[in-house]
Amino acid sequence: MTLFHYIHKDTVLHRMDGRLKLAALLFFGLAAGFSSEFHDYLVAFSVLFCALLLARLPVAALLKEMGFFGVLILIVMVVNAFTIPGEPIPNSPFAGISQQGVITGLRFAGRLLMVLLLSVVVTGTTPLARFRDAVEWYLRPFPFLPAARVATMFNLTFLLLPVILDNFKEIMAAQNSRCVQLRKNPVKRLKYLVFPLLDQTLRRADEIAYAMEARGYSEVRTRATFKSTKTDWLMLAISLLVFLFVLF
């Protein structure tokens, strides 16, 4: 699985200062949320696609793995097309589709796709540690907020997300091979899925906590060093411009 994983390359995006990248991510995320007109999408997607190429990520493999989300996007579009009230489309073979529904569905799908592409670019080019260090850097000035601890949690969550997801798939497969789908009672079905998942996750948590302690875990730790180049600032400026363009 390459989706949402760091893929090591040596490009300007990979080298970018984590703090600026985090800010750029925030601007772009806002842009995705506010996009509504066709030209908004055109600009945002062009910039994102350039970033994808610039980062030299394996585009074909990534698109293939986004299939899961593709189905989701499709469902949302269809649901919207049928349920949003409005003018019916003339000569449409499907009764009950409204123009407004299709437009709303497309907008929604566009936003979702944008967020996904954005995360692919960011997670693919940013080592988790640099991300974590940037988060810690932003949180440090806040009083009463244990920045180091939040950073550790951030790191662990993303480190173990794929592991737990694999675990979940394995449990599903094991249950399906024992014909869980024949069980009609939804309480039992959910139970059989969640019990092993929680049990294994808690066990794993215990072991990780021991392993971290054995290696002397401390919240007073070596601080990351940051350095930003002009290119980094340029990229931040581009994302700010995209956001402003979409907003107005």
Binding site: H8, P127, L128, A129, N155, L159, E207, I208, A211
Partner: peptide, 12 residues
């Protein structure tokens, strides 16, 4: 530790 998976705390 016995289970090397649970000792890994870094992404690289």
């Amino acid at each position: 530790f016995q289970n090397p998976e649970s000792q890994i705390v870094g992404q690289t």
